[in-house]
């Protein structure tokens, strides 16, 4: 549907210019992550460094903070919790907007309301509760809280997405004698695939970057995710130099970036709800 020609060129030009402006902070990030650790002066942040110090910086970061050990746990939390949350969110989205419960908005707000609470408010009560329930410093404990944190967004997106699906789809399924579960799992979920993937990658990134809950609800390196280890690099009391902090930040941010890139194909035009209209 795209048209080349002056409108198309203008569009692309605008996108390129705005994109470049957007990338400036990232340029600063990468350039200073590559800079050798002691070459940063505070005033030379724009210049391209004369030697490539990225690997050295990363290894310094790893020695200081033991990042590598927490990568496995972080991957575990970032995949399992959003996965569970996306399914739970789809369940409630389906229940609230396709089935006809009494007070659907109330139940939806109860679920979405979880997003309303400030994280810092949850820290101390959760810490005490986790300690009493023996969930403190366990993988299960962190998976549970991360899932709970991810459910509200999933519920919001999917409640609205399913609400936009034409009802004749549901009625057709009912006429064919499909059970509710089959209707949900085999018809509505595939239709919502792009929304599910979008929510998943957003939550993946959010959980991957979590600092507070991992810091508070776990104490061993094998259970804590990677961000608390990264945070220890930035401290008035000794921390690390700016290039080391940035290098660690860049390397640790790679998985979410890779996930975004890999998921791009889900957003190519084609995998669309519009196709259902043709059925």
């Amino acid at each position: 549907m795209s048209r080349l020609g002056s409108a198309g060129l203008l569009r692309r030009a605008v996108l390129i210019v705005v994109g470049l402006v957007w990338l400036v902070p990232l340029y600063l990030l990468v350039v200073n992550a590559i800079r050798p650790s002691t070459a940063f002066t505070g005033t030379n942040e724009w210049t391209i460094p004369s030697s490539f110090g990225l690997f050295q910086n990363v290894s310094t970061a790893e020695q200081s903070s033991g990042l590598a050990g927490s990568l496995a746990s972080t991957a575990l939390y970032s995949i399992v919790s959003p996965g569970l949350a996306v399914v739970i969110g789809a369940l409630v989205g389906f229940g609230v907007s396709v089935l006809q419960p009494r007070r659907p908005f109330f139940w939806f707000m109860v679920t979405f309301g979880g997003a309303v609470f400030p994280a810092q408010m949850l820290l101390v009560p959760l810490f005490v509760a986790y300690a009493q329930l023996n969930l403190y410093n366990t993988h299960q404990g962190l998976i549970i809280i991360y899932t709970a944190l991810s459910v509200p967004l999933a519920a919001l997106v999917l409640r609205n997405f399913f609400g936009g699906v034409p009802t004749h789809l549901f009625q057709a399924a009912q006429i064919d004698g499909a059970s509710l579960w089959t209707t949900f799992w085999r018809i509505y979920i595939p239709v919502a695939l792009s929304a599910l993937v979008a929510v998943f990658i957003l939550e993946f990134t959010f959980i991957w970057n979590d600092l507070l809950f991992g810091l508070t609800l776990a104490s061993s390196n094998g259970v804590r995710p990677v961000m608390p280890a990264l945070a220890s690099l930035q401290s008035a009391y000794g921390g690390s130099t700016v290039p080391v902090v940035l290098a660690a930040g860049v390397v640790v941010s790679l998985p979410p970036v890779v996930v975004f890139l890999a998921a791009q194909r889900f957003f190519a035009r084609g995998l669309a709800l519009s196709q259902i209209a043709e059925l």
């Binding site: 795209s2 957007w22 990338l23 957003l202 902090v245 930040g249 979410p256 996930v259 975004f260």
Partner: peptide, 26 residues
Amino acid sequence: GIRHGGWYRLPFLLPYAMSGAGVAVI
């Protein structure tokens, strides 16, 4: 809907993927 639309979007998606620590320093 334009060709390589995903690539044009990439510069805007990358910042979200960056960790808070790096972003604050920048």
